[in-house]
Simulated assay, not measured.
Amino acid sequence: MLKNLVTERKLIRTLAKNDFKTKFAGSYLGIVWALVQPIVTVLVYWFVFQVGLKQTDTSAYHGYPFILWMLAGLVPWFYFQEAMTGGTNVLMEYSYLVKKVVFKIEILPMVKAVSALFIHTFFVCVAVVLYSCYGKFPGVYGLQILYYSFCMFVLASGICYAASAVAVFFRDLLQIVNIILQVGVWATPIMWDLQSIGLPGIVAKIFKLNPMYYIVYGYRDALINKVWFWERPGLTLYFWGFTVLMFLIGTRIFRRLRIHFADVL
Rank of each mutant, 00 (worst) to 15 (best):
H120K: 07
L199P: 04
V264Q: 13
G73R: 03
F24T: 13
Y45H: 11
A222K: 01
Y219Q: 02
V129N: 05
G198W: 08
I180N: 01
S157H: 10
G87W: 04
Q37G: 00
F47D: 04
S95H: 11
A163M: 14
R220A: 05
T41Q: 14
L174Q: 15
R9Y: 10
L181R: 04
N4A: 11
F247R: 03
L181I: 11
V183L: 15
A25P: 00
C133L: 15
H62L: 12
W228T: 09
W240R: 01
Y134A: 12
Y161W: 10
F20I: 03
I190T: 08
V166P: 03
W230I: 09
V140T: 11
A222L: 01
V42A: 13
Y141C: 02
F242D: 00
V129D: 06
I107R: 05
F66L: 01
R171G: 00
W33K: 03
V128M: 09
W230P: 00
V111N: 07
L68R: 05
L245T: 13
G139E: 09
G86Y: 04
I31K: 14
A262G: 09
Q144A: 05
M110N: 07
K100Q: 15
K100N: 10
W46C: 04
Y238W: 10
K23E: 14
F47R: 06
V166G: 03
I12Q: 04
L237S: 10
R255A: 14
V126W: 08
F153M: 06
F118K: 06
K104T: 09
A222S: 05
F49V: 07
V166Y: 07
L108I: 11
Y238C: 04
Q195I: 01
N210P: 08
V177R: 06
A60C: 00
F239L: 02
F49S: 07
L5S: 02
R171S: 07
V102R: 12
G63E: 10
L237Y: 10
Y147S: 10
V101T: 11
G198H: 08
V102H: 13
L74D: 03
Q50D: 13
V44E: 11
T121E: 05
Y96F: 15
F118L: 13
V44W: 10
F247C: 09
L173E: 01
Y45F: 15
I224G: 01
G139M: 09
P189T: 03
R232G: 02
I206M: 10
F150H: 04
I202F: 15
F20H: 08
D263N: 09
Y147T: 13
V48W: 08
A167H: 15
M70E: 00
Q144D: 05
Y45W: 14
Q195C: 00
D263R: 05
D221Y: 09
A187W: 11
S27K: 06
R258Y: 00
V140R: 12
Y238N: 05
F66V: 01
S27I: 04
V128Q: 04
S132M: 11
W192N: 05
F103S: 07
V75G: 08
C125A: 15
E82A: 14
G201S: 08
L130D: 01
L199A: 07
V183E: 02
C133Q: 12
N4G: 12
G26I: 07
I249D: 02
A16L: 07
S59T: 15
K104Q: 14
T14R: 13
Y147N: 08
